[in-house]
């Protein structure tokens, strides 16, 4: 009887130690894979640089479009000046050294993707779209509504601001959850969302949409103020 108990204790001790060994190995390996996923570096392609150059060009064109000062003889001089000021502030908030650093980066890490998303959220979404451009459309009694062409493009402005202001929130949530073991960035897994590369592409798309919107608005302003 004693021998059986001793044998059982022996088996039990090796079983428990074996289970602990297995669990520890599993956790160690999952950490190795997670480390590789989280620390993946995306090397920019030529197409990415082309997109960045086009965005920089557009910002230069926007800047030149909004330099035109409306004529004092224009009955809506104050309104156009107001629009010009707001577009100027937008361009100042967006066309910064920080944006240049983002565009000049050759290698993108998860940390860089987060910084890009935060720049979009703070400078483009909050400072430009919500603080400046949204005020053009929220006041129904504003004298801007007397300008026929502005009344025509007002729904366009409203729709664009509404779609652009929260567009990076989903990406922010995905990026913030990268401490989860299920986060994946392995380039080989083409059918699964590649955390670093796809987040970066989505954000550049949002940058493109936002700058295109401001570009169209500046073109309209330029056409009005002749």
């Amino acid at each position: 009887m004693k021998n059986i108990v001793i044998e059982y204790f022996n088996i039990l001790s090796y079983t428990i130690t074996g289970l602990v060994f297995g669990l520890a190995s599993f956790i160690l390996l999952i950490n190795v894979f997670h480390y590789n996923s989280v620390n993946e570096i995306y090397v920019k392609q030529d197409s990415d640089y082309e997109i960045n150059d086009k965005l920089k060009e557009k910002l230069t064109v926007i800047n030149s479009n909004i330099q035109k000062i409306p004529s004092r003889a224009n009955p809506n001089f104050i309104d156009y000046s107001n629009i010009q000021t707001k577009l100027n502030i937008c361009v100042q908030k967006i066309n910064t050294k920080e944006l240049n650093n983002i565009f000049n980066k050759d290698k993108i890490t998860m940390s860089d993707v987060y910084d890009i998303q935060q720049f979009y959220k703070i400078n483009i979404s909050n400072e430009c779209l919500i603080k400046e451009l949204n005020t053009l459309i929220t006041d129904d009694n504003s004298s801007l509504n007397n300008i026929a062409s502005f009344k025509t493009i007002k729904p366009f402005i409203e729709d664009n601001i509404n779609s652009l202001k929260d567009s990076s929130d989903y990406i922010e949530k995905v990026i913030k959850s990268n401490s989860d073991y299920s986060f994946s960035s392995n380039v080989v897994k083409v059918s699964i969302f590649n955390g670093v590369q796809d987040s970066y592409y989505e954000l550049i798309k949002e940058y493109n949409n936002a700058i295109n919107f401001i570009y169209d608005l500046s073109k309209w302003y330029n056409s009005e103020v002749i």
Binding site: N39, M110, S111, K176, S179
Partner: peptide, 13 residues
Amino acid sequence: RAIYDKNMILNKI
């Protein structure tokens, strides 16, 4: 990793 892996964004936040 909890201390030094800065690419886990919660580390920054």
